[in-house]
């Protein structure tokens, strides 16, 4: 489809193009990335003053791994990782099962309500979820600690895992598992041997998103964690309350790279198998 129309002057104008929109789009990228880049660059600053440039050095990274607070951050990082992995695995299993229940069980009346329930954690503001979860654990007198953080994370990871998995499942015609059943596969075999391999990119990208979301969470974790238990974000928050120190910028940069890597991975996996085609809507 051509949108180029010769104007009266004889010059070809692109009707789709609006002057300034391209500039704003580049400005948008600049705003999004400038702060991250600046922090990443300054994390290599040799100077102890965090604004003056004193040459390239890795001393702050050294401090992160071997410095005074290394043990604290190591424990926090370990907590973060183990919670994120567990929460992502559990929520991905739940979400995969829910996607099958929503999309492979024929039309049913409760579907909109069921979808609303699954996406509830996305609609309620985080601070409200945090307060409500704190109140809940307090009322049932459940001691706050890693367990409460894990449960809270599983809850809000479910919709993040569900969306890519369901999107993927929606693009797979129902004939495959039907064919499997016709050939005397059990329902479980039809899922494990036929549907799951087809869904795999969606499941993997759902897992990665759940993992990132869990790793990132600050507000809910901050409310439901017990005293003395820290994840990486709460440890960083605690540290910057005393001022931004260069080692915090080094940790941030590491975490930043890790997230970007995971997103790129998730994106790549999500595109796998679709061959660049648009998934059926």
């Amino acid at each position: 489809m051509s949108t180029e129309t010769p104007a009266k002057t004889g010059k070809v104008v692109d009707l789709k193009r609006y002057p300034g929109f391209a500039h704003l789009a580049f400005l948008c990228l600049l705003i999004l990335y400038a702060p991250l880049l600046v922090v990443a660059v300054y994390s290599f600053n040799d100077s102890a003053s965090i604004t003056l440039w004193g040459g390239f050095s890795l001393r702050w990274y050294e401090e992160v791994f071997f410095g005074l607070e290394a043990a604290k951050f190591k424990t926090a990082a370990w907590n973060s990782l183990s919670i994120a992995v567990t929460a992502a695995i559990v929520s991905t299993c739940f979400a995969t099962s829910a996607a099958l229940g929503m999309l492979r069980t024929g039309a049913f009346r409760g579907r909109p309500l069921s979808f609303a329930l699954i996406s509830l954690p996305l609609m309620v503001p985080e601070i409200v979820t945090a307060v409500a979860t704190l109140i809940f654990f307090n009322t049932i007198a459940f001691e706050r600690g890693l367990g409460t953080i894990l449960v809270a994370h599983i809850v809000f990871c479910i919709p993040f895992a569900y969306l890519p998995i369901a999107a993927r499942l929606q693009g797979i015609p129902g004939i495959y598992e039907q064919a499997a059943l016709d050939l005397y596969a059990t329902r479980w075999e039809a899922f494990r041997l036929v549907l799951l391999p087809l869904m795999a990119p969606g499941v993997l990208s759902g897992f990665l998103l759940a993992f990132i979301v869990s790793l990132d969470d600050f507000i809910i974790t901050n409310f439901v964690k017990g005293a003395g238990i820290e994840t990486l974000p709460t440890a960083i928050y605690g540290a910057i309350k005393q001022g931004i120190k260069p080692n915090i910028m080094a940790i941030s940069t590491l975490l930043l790279l890790f997230s970007i890597l995971l997103v790129a991975l998730s994106w790549q996996i999500g595109r796998m198998g679709t061959d660049g085609k648009k998934p059926a809507d």
Partner: peptide, 27 residues
């Protein structure tokens, strides 16, 4: 485009883990 759905009989079992988790720990 969907037919009756292969997993119609076990629908509630498939949805239960997510339903229960969100209902108990969120709702």
């Amino acid at each position: 485009q969907e037919g009756p759905g292969v997993y119609a009989e076990v629908r509630n079992w498939l949805l239960a883990p997510s339903w229960l988790t969100i209902a108990i720990f969120m709702l």
